[in-house]
Design a protein around this nucleic acid. Structure first.
Length: 372
DNA sequence: AAGACCCACAACCGCCACCGA
DNA sequence: GTCGGTGGCGGTTGTGGGTCT
């Protein structure tokens, strides 16, 4: 083999660093639509300025619908310790025995928690000691909870342990979501989005019908719509509308029509339309967007559906009322945004966190995008 | 209050294994 | 058997919020 190994991609041509919500959306949407037969080609096809490897990692470690987040249970930690004892740093092998967990996650947990604890225990771990280790590390798990990025997994652990893993989303959710509650809880509870995510995480993780191994390459097209929606909005990080819009409006991402998976254009248009929501010109822009976009030619039906969908969102988000309010306010303070700058899409899209409630029952079907 | 330090985690990097031509 | 391409794995690093001083 010519070991002057060619780089997997041109580093100067790819974006690096943390993934933006918009990029995540693109990746999710593309994979849901087309699967991931060729990681190297995927970024280009999906319109992402990312290395294929990066896409793969992002998908496997973060975006896969069956990826389970939140704290490791005592049982899981015990398993890791045992398996590590048997196999050493064979993270993927260990991960294959922990459904929904990724090698990266396990590696991190090992390096940050378990190794230290084992070291503290003098490296001589037996069953009893293990329990004490892992039980103390369930506060280490709680160290997860308390930590910043545990928006990602934060607040998940309780519910995720309570809900049987084999329980399907539609079983655990008798769906009737209530956006008013969301809006209310948004104001009261800044953590609501993470708790809202709890349920989502349960759904996504508990509905892992495939092997849940890291190397999983099951066709994602088979995902249930709920699951797709779940993964779509399953952001560990605050999902900032302005971030999305910034990303979407960037030149490289803005060229919506260049996205090869045409069906998703509608979704990007929807994101674009959200921009107009923020610019206080909802109705006009919504019409304009529909009229100027490339689905105009697909007939007024689609336009109506889009409008319906946007109207639905507006209604549910109370944007209509806010808009009216803004009109009043605009005389006093024209700069006041319809949606607060720090509003999260996750806040907006994630229904109330009550596990007895469901998510999708009352969602209208997204306009002409079968992937959703 | 502010700066320094700590820590967890996402993401990157480079190597290896496998496969098909 | 060789070569090139690709996916996968494990080690390492960068980032940024939390905690300490």
């Amino acid at each position: 083999m010519g070991r002057g190994r060619a780089p997997c991609c041109d580093k100067s041509q790819v974006k690096r660093g943390p993934w933006s919500p918009a990029e995540d959306l693109r990746l999710i949407t593309f994979i849901q639509k087309h699967g991931h037969d060729n990681w190297r080609a995927l970024p280009k096809l999906a319109g992402l300025l990312r290395c294929g490897k990066s896409c793969r990692l992002r998908w496997i470690n973060y975006l896969r619908p069956d990826v389970k987040r939140g704290n490791f249970t005592i049982e899981e930690e015990e398993s890791i310790v045992k398996l590590h004892k048997a196999w050493g740093n064979k993270w993927s092998k260990i991960a294959s025995h922990l459904p929904g967990r990724t090698d990266n996650e396990i590696k991190n947990v090992w390096n940050t928690h378990l190794k230290k604890k084992l070291t503290m225990k003098d490296g001589n771990v037996h069953g009893d000691e293990l329990s004490s280790i892992t039980s103390s590390s369930s506060s280490s798990s709680s160290s997860f909870t308390s930590r910043k990025k545990q928006n990602i997994g934060g607040g998940i652990e309780h519910q995720s342990e309570q809900v049987p893993m084999d329980k399907k989303p539609h079983e655990e959710c008798n769906l009737t979501h209530d956006f008013e509650k969301i809006q209310g809880s948004q104001k009261e509870d800044t953590n609501q989005f993470s708790s809202g995510k709890d349920l989502i995480d349960q759904s996504s993780s508990s509905y892992s019908s495939y092997d849940s191994n890291v190397s999983n390459s099951s066709p994602v097209d088979a995902l249930r719509p709920e699951e797709q929606m779940v993964s779509l909005f399953d952001y560990g990080e605050p999902f900032d509308v302005s971030n999305v819009l910034q990303e979407v409006n960037k030149p490289d991402v803005d060229s919506v029509n260049e996205i090869p998976f045409e069906a998703d254009v509608d979704f990007w248009n929807m994101l674009d339309n959200l921009d107009s929501v923020m610019s206080n010109e909802v109705q006009q822009c919504e019409v304009n967007a529909c009229q100027s976009s490339n689905f105009e030619e697909e007939g007024s039906k689609k336009v109506d559906e889009n409008k319906k969908w946007l109207r639905y969102l507006e209604n549910e988000l109370g944007l209509d009322a806010m808009e009216e309010e803004n009109k009043d306010i605009s005389t006093k303070d024209a700069a006041q945004p319809l949606v607060p700058e720090n509003a999260f899409v996750s806040d907006i899209f994630k229904p109330e966190t009550n596990p007895d409630m469901g998510y999708f029952e009352t969602w209208p079907s997204l306009p002409h995008n079968s992937a959703f």
